[in-house]
Amino acid sequence: MNMHSLILRTAGNFLLPLLLLFSVFLLLRGHDEPGGGFIAGLVAAGAIVLYVFSMDIASARRLLRVDPRDLLGAGMVIAVLSGAPAAFLGQPYFTAQWWEFGLPGGGELKLSTVLIFDIGVYLVVVGAVLTIILNLAEAED
């Protein structure tokens, strides 16, 4: 699936890193501002799909390095495991755990199992969308 469009190809090359970065941004800020794992995952998947349209599937797969199905599995595992710390602390599974760190320069870093769960969601969404789209696109060849 190659559109052979110079404009699309050039734009795709620039847009991909930007979109991926944006998706991570959305993922991280999701707890306080619009965003979150689901939206960020869709954006990232969209970025890769754009790359598929501007280049071709084989180079998209090379870019990914891993099979999207592995992302799917890894995401599920991460999401399920994010509930485990609570269990070790004797709380019901999936009780959120928060750790706050002061950063040099007055900032504050909030880490949590919730974020880990959201990363799992992110990976599952990316994996699911890409598994479907890449295979559908390949099947036509």
Binding site: G30, H31, G35, A96
Partner: peptide, 8 residues
């Protein structure tokens, strides 16, 4: 929930 985005 330590978050301002209720949906999330």
């Amino acid at each position: 929930g330590y978050g301002r985005n209720v949906v999330n």
